[in-house]
């Protein structure tokens, strides 16, 4: 889990170095991430964790915080 978290943080921080991902809990609702960021983050996550996040998973509640994204990754890894 901790390993996943670090890998995810690396992806997020590389895409948007200006956002404090530890602190922000409403990345989508507060419009901190735009659609281009989402696409780039999703493709990096898919590669790094060998999962396939599809368009049905693109709900705000799955991307609002690091914890939410981690939960999504874990769920898809288990499926």
């Amino acid at each position: 889990m901790e390993e996943n978290r670090q890998e995810l943080m690396d992806i997020l921080e590389e895409t948007r170095p200006d956002i404090d991902f530890e602190k922000e809990k409403a990345l989508i609702d507060d419009e901190l991430l735009d659609s281009f960021d989402i696409i780039s983050i999703v493709s990096e996550i898919n590669d790094a964790f060998d999962i396939s996040i599809n368009v049905n998973d693109l709900l705000p509640e799955n991307f609002n915080s690091v914890e939410a994204i981690l939960t999504l990754i874990t769920r898809l890894q288990e499926e």
């Binding site: 659609s35 989402i38 696409i39 493709s43 898919n46 590669d47 996040i53 599809n54 368009v55 693109l58």
Partner: peptide, 20 residues
């Protein structure tokens, strides 16, 4: 357009392949 056109195209299999 973002939710029903942009995301499905950008996350489609051919696009993922092209990206790789």
């Amino acid at each position: 357009m973002r939710d029903y056109v942009f995301y499905p195209i950008a996350l489609s299999k051919p696009f993922a392949k092209m990206q790789k």
